[in-house]
Computed example of a mutant assay.
Amino acid sequence: MAQIGYTMMTEQAGPRELVDHVVAAERAGFDFSVTSDHYFPWLRSQGHAPYAWSVLGAAAQATERIPLMTYVTCPTVRYHPAVIAQKAATTQLLSGGRFRLGLGSGENLNEHVVGAGWPAPRTRLEMLAEAVEIIRALFGGGDVTHHGEHFDVENARLWDLPEQAPPIGVAVSGPVSCGVAGELADLVIATEPRADLLAEFDRHGGTGKPRVGQLQVCYDPDRAAAVDRAYEMARWSLGAWPVNSELRGPAGFDAAAAPITHEQVAEAIPCGDDVRLFTDAVQAYVDAGFTEIALVQVGGDHQLPFLEWANRTLLPELRKL
């Protein structure tokens, strides 16, 4: 049976609200949680972007059972991998071993803010692979010095190490990233129900490792209101990743998503309160081979009604898949 997770979407709620939401998700019976890590929201209408790692620290103290995970952190431009290793080790200690470190090659949207430029896709994946090696070395203990193609580390050491290092996940969207994930990661991460990505991951050493997907949904008893909200706040997600990863801010996402219609959003994102729409969408991930699926409820002010409905109606049906 696939595990069902909840997403703390930092682009659509403030830090206190995000912690309240994951506490409610734990009470509702979700199996795990994930957290986005952004400096900008995709669209101005989303309206938020608190620091994910502070939220994770607070969530680790406010919850008791539910696993936590970044979905995903870019360890290459805005953050140095040595700093990511320290943050991840600390979060693992605070959570009592409930944390997983999800990594990805990033988006210009968040990484451009430090003024270091935005590398080409192939370079970004090379940087990601080198970053994973550095993080693993620091998780291993002892002093680490590294002079690589993209990063330098001088006499670094993590002085507070958890007994069990956080498992590392890598987000994939094509063959090259699947190769990095299969060779270097403990689990794979994707945002589309694509069996071909998992097959490529397996081909590079991923067989038997967890595979985590993510699905946007928009619960509301009023289906028309749900479609309107999904259009207002989530239409960006229908864009192609090669384009989305290059955009620098909400204005760019708004322009790129201009041709997208309400009808296209309603077809791509389960909207309303017909539980079959939600279970069918999750089933697509299960059929593709995903072992865990994290749900994203669209709308920061609509989390608690969704969580109540999920506890009462949605999760019992998903357990049957």
Results as ranks from 00 to 15, higher is better:
Asp152Gln: 14
Phe151Glu: 03
Val265Glu: 09
Ala120Cys: 01
His112Ser: 00
Met1Trp: 00
Gly206Asn: 01
Gly148Thr: 11
Trp236Asn: 02
Gly179His: 08
Ala224Asn: 03
Tyr6Ser: 08
Arg100Val: 05
Gly102Trp: 03
Arg122Glu: 12
Glu308Asn: 12
Arg276Tyr: 01
Thr313Ala: 13
Gln46Lys: 02
Pro67Leu: 03
Glu317His: 14
Val172Gly: 04
Val113Met: 13
Thr207Ser: 13
Ser45Met: 04
Ser237Phe: 02
Gln3Cys: 03
Thr76Gly: 05
Arg16Gly: 14
Thr261Phe: 08
Ala281His: 06
Tyr6Cys: 07
Ile168Glu: 01
Arg65Phe: 11
Ile269Trp: 05
Glu292Pro: 00
Ala82Phe: 06
Arg27Gly: 08
Ala85Ile: 12
Ala156Phe: 07
Glu130Phe: 10
Arg194Met: 01
Ala89Ile: 10
Leu128Phe: 06
Ala190Arg: 03
Ala52Gln: 03
Ala13Pro: 09
Leu277Asn: 14
Val180Pro: 12
Ala165Thr: 10
Gln164Trp: 11
His150Leu: 07
Trp309Ala: 01
Gly289Met: 00
Arg312Thr: 12
Asp31Tyr: 11
Val172Asp: 07
His48Phe: 14
Gln264Lys: 10
Phe278Cys: 05
Gly104Met: 05
Asp287Phe: 08
Gly104Glu: 09
Phe278Asn: 03
His21Ser: 15
Gly97His: 07
Gly179Asn: 13
Lys87Val: 04
Leu18Trp: 02
Gly213Ala: 08
Thr73Ser: 14
Val176Gln: 14
Gly179Ser: 13
Arg136His: 04
Ala258Met: 14
Ala255Leu: 11
Gly106Arg: 09
Arg65Pro: 09
Arg100Ser: 15
Gly213Trp: 07
Gln214Arg: 08
Ala116Cys: 09
Gly104Gln: 05
Phe30Asp: 01
Pro166Asn: 13
His21Gln: 15
Pro221Thr: 09
Ala24Gly: 08
Thr91Val: 15
Gly249Ile: 04
Phe253Tyr: 15
Ala266Lys: 05
Gly299Gln: 00
Gly182Asp: 06
Val144Leu: 15
Ala82Val: 07
Asp222Ser: 04
Asp220Arg: 11
Arg319Tyr: 07
Ala137Gln: 10
Trp118Gln: 01
Leu247Arg: 04
Ala82Tyr: 04
Cys271Tyr: 07
Asp186Met: 02
Met69Gln: 11
Ala13His: 12
Leu18Gln: 07
Thr261Pro: 11
Val243Tyr: 10
Ile189Phe: 12
Ala24Lys: 12
Phe278His: 05
Gly14Ile: 09
Tyr6Phe: 15
Pro50Ser: 09
Lys209Tyr: 08
Ser173Gly: 09
Ala226Glu: 05
Gly272Lys: 07
Val153Cys: 08
Asp254Glu: 15
Leu125Glu: 03
Ala49Met: 13
Gly96Tyr: 14
Glu154Arg: 15
Leu197Arg: 04
Leu238Arg: 00
Gly102Gln: 03
Ala199Lys: 13
Ala240Tyr: 13
Gln86Tyr: 12
Val83Pro: 02
Thr76Met: 12
Val19His: 07
Thr123Gly: 02
Leu197Pro: 08
Leu277Gly: 13
Ala195Met: 07
Gly169Arg: 06
Val227Cys: 01
Val180Trp: 10
Thr207His: 09
Pro67Lys: 02
